[in-house]
Amino acid sequence: MRLIRATLAAIVAGLLVLLVPAQPAWAHAKLLTTDPADGATVGAPLAAVTFTFNEMVKQQFSTVVVTGADGASYSDGAPTSVDKTLTQPVKPLPNGAVRVAWRTVSVDGHPIEGQFTFTSAAAPTSGAPSPTPTSAPATVAADPASGDDDSGRSGVVWLVLGGVAVVLVLAGGAVWWRRRSATG
């Protein structure tokens, strides 16, 4: 009976070691706020669009495309990430609807993306160069290396469940072997 209790305690401890640390790795970054906010009207010239997440994101995999009502891209260089904030500098925006499409990667490797719109009511300063309109709507480039994290997560779940099954089979075999040796 003592062997069975010890085996069960070892199995429970093994399961806790396997499962408890794995849960935080499944948490993905979530967008908390944007500046300007979705649906907002901006009356002053805007220098950047900022995103605030609940955790840090990977700057090297971040893309932000800011498109004016004229179909031109107004993103000015690459976005930068500091702590939980991603910032995309923008060129002077024309009046009208502005679409912001973004894509980034959580620290756990999960790609996240989204889009929102706001209205610019501040004409660009005179003498500012106007960007060249693009022939096609701007899109956020996908990172083919990031893949779909859901399949990776299910692989981890199956790996953990397989490990648990192996531990249970081995423990059952050890109990059976011990009982067989004690009776014979």
Rank of each mutant, 00 (worst) to 15 (best):
D148I: 10
T87F: 06
P36D: 01
A121C: 03
G173H: 06
V42L: 14
V57P: 04
V57H: 11
G68L: 00
P124A: 08
A44R: 15
G96I: 08
V17Y: 03
P36Y: 03
V20P: 01
A13E: 04
S151H: 13
P92R: 01
S106D: 07
P92L: 06
V90C: 11
R99N: 15
A6H: 12
T139K: 13
Q60Y: 10
A40G: 00
A142K: 12
V66W: 01
S81D: 12
T33Y: 12
Q88V: 03
V157Q: 01
S106G: 02
M56C: 01
R103A: 11
V90E: 08
L16C: 09
I4K: 08
V175G: 09
P79F: 04
L161K: 02
G43F: 10
G184V: 10
D76T: 04
S154D: 10
S120V: 05
L32M: 15
T63L: 11
D143G: 02
G162F: 08
V65M: 13
A121H: 05
E55A: 12
G114P: 13
L170A: 12
T52Y: 05
A37F: 09
P92Q: 08
P144K: 08
P111T: 09
N54V: 00
A72N: 10
V105R: 14
S120R: 04
G163D: 01
A69N: 11
F61Q: 09
L8C: 14
D108N: 15
R180G: 05
I11S: 05
S120Y: 01
D35R: 11
A97Y: 04
V100G: 06
A29W: 07
L3H: 13
A171T: 06
S181P: 00
P94I: 14
A9R: 04
W176R: 12
L161Q: 07
P124T: 01
S135L: 14
D70F: 09
A142G: 02
S81K: 15
R99L: 15
N54K: 00
L159N: 14
F118P: 03
T132Q: 15
A27V: 13
D76C: 04
V157N: 05
T7D: 09
S62Y: 02
T7V: 15
A48K: 08
V166W: 01
A9K: 00
A165S: 13
A10W: 06
P144Y: 09
A128K: 09
A40K: 05
T41G: 07
F61V: 02
P131W: 14
A44G: 00
A6C: 11
W176L: 11
K58Y: 11
G147R: 08
A171S: 14
A29M: 00
T52S: 12
G152W: 06
V12I: 15
G14Q: 04
F53I: 05
Q88I: 01
G184C: 09
L161N: 01
L18N: 02
S146T: 15
K91E: 04
A122R: 00
T85S: 02
A136Q: 11
D150L: 14
S151F: 12
T52L: 12
V175F: 07
V20Y: 08
L46C: 13
P131V: 14
I112M: 13
T125F: 10
R2I: 04
V82A: 15
L15P: 03
T85M: 02
G163I: 05
V105G: 05
R5V: 08
G71F: 11
